[in-house]
């Protein structure tokens, strides 16, 4: 069971809603993933095209919790404004604080992220900050009162997988709030590794939405996250340099 603030989820996969080929594929992928948390962005509406379909309107909101993000913000002030707008919808009180500090790598601005998280926590939001894999920063966000920390595996949408497994493991070992690996996941092996390293969940988008078959990939990610979690709970064997035989050395027929 994944617990974030007051909410409990059976699924440890949080799914983004951007960049799917069409709504039908997206709906099928969401179902196949068995996710219970969907992320969204907040943007100006094209008021002259009111009839344009919106994925949110196709969802059974009893089945999903919404996790809007503050994507597009580069300052704490902008992030707070987007968060407040999203909450005014009356549909959600969770917020993924995402304050980008570098347009090329889309890595977060740690100082503005902390500022935004502080304000939003004061206002009663359930705050999930997107952060780098910086161990101390993750701890400080937790100390601030954040309800989860979401370190990236690698740059958003890059599909590079986990580029610093050591840091990620330091973060999962020290944290008393859920650690959700957010961004950079490429394939199911990456998601499984994140879970094996002790993550409580994985948030991904492009790895599913831009896969050749998003529906199949959604299912693969679901299974990988379950497998990785089971593996973590089971406790893997330590790595050794040399072999150790699995069959007994005694009773050989030619001795």
């Amino acid at each position: 069971m994944l617990k974030i603030g007051p909410y409990e989820f059976n699924s440890r996969l949080l799914l983004g809603t951007g960049k799917y080929p069409n709504f039908d594929v997206q709906r099928e992928a969401v179902e196949a993933s068995e996710t219970e948390v969907l992320t969204f962005a907040v943007r100006r509406m094209n008021i002259f095209e009111a009839n344009q379909p919106n994925f949110l309107e196709k969802l059974d909101l009893k089945k999903y919790k919404l996790l809007p993000n503050t994507a597009g913000a580069s300052t704490a002030e902008e992030a707070v404004r987007i968060a407040r707008l999203s909450k005014a919808s009356g549909l959600c009180d969770m917020i993924k604080v995402e304050v980008i500090g570098c347009s090329k790598t889309l890595l977060p601005d740690p100082i503005e992220t902390i500022k935004a998280a502080e304000i939003l926590l004061d206002e009663g939001f359930i705050v999930l900050p997107y952060t780098s894999d910086d161990v101390v920063l993750a701890r400080k966000l937790e100390e601030l009162g954040c309800h989860a920390v979401m370190p990236c595996a690698s740059p958003i949408g890059s599909g590079q997988g986990i580029i610093n497994p050591i840091n990620l493991q330091f973060i999962t070992e020290q944290a008393d709030v859920p650690v959700i690996v957010d961004a950079g996941i490429g394939g199911p092996a990456d998601a499984a590794l994140a879970m094996e390293l002790g993550a409580d969940g994985v948030l991904l988008n492009t790895a599913v939405s831009s896969a050749a078959d998003p529906v199949k990939m959604a299912k693969a990610m679901k299974l990988a996250i379950e497998a990785g979690r089971l593996g973590y709970e089971a406790g893997r064997i330590p790595q050794k340099r040399y072999a150790s035989a699995s069959s007994p050395a005694e009773g050989m027929v030619f001795s």
Partner: peptide, 10 residues
């Protein structure tokens, strides 16, 4: 006046 809504995002 700003009129905003939720769109797909990660």
């Amino acid at each position: 006046i700003e009129i905003v809504h939720f769109v797909g995002g990660g």
